Amino acid sequence: MKSKLSPEILEKYFKGDCNEAEIAEIRAWYASFEPDLDDISALPREEVQLLKQLMWSNISDNIESNNVVDIDRRRSLWRSVIYWVSSSAAILLVLFLVKQQGTRPNTVASHAREPLKEAVSNTAGVIKKITLSDGSTVWLSPKSALTYLQKFTGQKREVTLTGEAFFEVTKDSNRPFSIYSGNVITKVWGTSFRVRSFTADKTTKVNVLTGKVSVAIAVPKETRTDLNNEVMLLPNQEAVYDKNLGQLQKNDKIKDVSIGMWKKANLSFNNTQLRDVFKVLSKSFNVKISSDDERINSDYLKADFTNENLPAIMEILQTTLNVTYSVRNENEFILEGSK
């Protein structure tokens, strides 16, 4: 390994104060690392290059992390980083970790860059609202679970669902949005629809309210029948997958009336007693809303619900009235006072 670089020059480089000659000196120093006979000479040439790349990556990571450090501590941290990267111990430390863990540097780096996943399990009695990184909204029903990337990358957006959820997908013509629910794959570009795929159910259903959705089965082509082919759904159409028969069927009309809670409505109340508000909401969304608490029933509400579905309205009521609700038998909403 060649001579060390002055920490002062590195400090100037990180601050952006180097002239062209000093920058050239730094780049020459970085390119000068060669395997010594007593440390990394046994490594292949490719791995030596990987060690250098990892070291440079670590330098960059340390610089980026300093951006959030208190100003009074920044200069000392700069010094720590600079003295670290200007010593031969940097490469030797990486080499030690590689030998001890049996992991190559490129593998370590690739794991560090893997997108982080979120797994949300709704064990409460309410419908949980989830906003994804692309702006899409997922309304996760009770006893359901959703897995997704914290930030969508590349040319696709993918989530995995167990149970039931209603999706309002942000339009993106370059990146399809795919939902994996058992053997069923639902793919869209921007639309609103519901997927119901509980493990105990005999069927998986996809109901479309707006836009266009494709539904297919994740099975080998040689095992498919005519009913297994991909189907395209338009608004108010549904696809039903029979788990036992392995068949996918398209219906031109949604048969499940509970889809009504996801249709958006415009409703206005002007100092209306809540018992009457519940009656209007129940009729509008084809559900049953009630409360056993007379204090809630006798309260009054003044509100405008414009282009809102029932779960969104229930969230507003929870915040405004300081109440909670639970879902029973899929279409019954029971309100209680907050404890």
Score class of each variant (00 low, 15 high):
I59W: 14
T210L: 02
M55V: 14
F333I: 09
T324A: 07
K302S: 11
K128C: 07
P142L: 02
W78D: 15
A165V: 06
F333A: 09
P176N: 05
V215A: 03
D70C: 15
P115E: 02
A21C: 03
S133Y: 04
V169Y: 01
I179N: 01
K263G: 09
L227K: 15
K212M: 14
I296V: 08
L5C: 10
Q155M: 14
W56I: 13
S32V: 01
G102V: 11
K12S: 11
I40N: 11
L310C: 03
P220Y: 05
S181F: 07
L209V: 06
P220K: 10
D70K: 15
R45V: 15
D172L: 07
K129A: 06
N236E: 05
I127E: 01
V159E: 06
I179A: 00
L321Q: 04
S32D: 08
V213L: 03
D292C: 07
T225R: 08
I127C: 01
F166G: 10
K99G: 09
P311N: 03
V257F: 14
E46D: 05
S290H: 06
E294V: 13
K255S: 03
E332P: 13
E8K: 15
K288D: 14
L97T: 12
R27P: 08
L77D: 04
R328W: 13
K128H: 04
I296N: 07
K117I: 13
I185S: 07
K2A: 05
K4S: 15
G154L: 07
E25R: 09
A218N: 14
R74N: 08
G102Y: 12
D299P: 02
N174W: 04
S80N: 14
E114H: 10
L335V: 12
S76E: 10
R194W: 01
S284N: 12
A21I: 09
L317G: 04
L43W: 04
V68R: 12
V215D: 00
V206M: 02
R175E: 08
T191W: 00
Q150V: 09
I63M: 05
A28R: 08
S214E: 13
L140K: 06
T203V: 14
L92M: 13
M55S: 12
V257M: 06
E20F: 02
G190P: 00
L10Q: 05
I71C: 04
T107D: 06
F152S: 02
R175C: 09
D292H: 11
D134E: 03
N309Q: 11
V138N: 00
E330A: 11
A31G: 05
D39F: 11
T320S: 03
D242G: 10
V81K: 09
S192K: 05
K212L: 12
L161S: 10
N244E: 13
N322E: 14
V208A: 04
A90Q: 13
L234Y: 07
R104M: 06
G211D: 00
T225I: 07
R295S: 08
V257W: 03
K52L: 06
R27C: 15
Y300A: 13
V240G: 02
V94L: 12
N307C: 03
T203Y: 09
V327P: 02
S326N: 07
V219I: 15
R328Q: 12
S338Q: 07
Q49R: 12
D72F: 11
F333M: 05
L93K: 08
I130S: 00
T131I: 15
V69E: 04
V277D: 05
E230G: 13
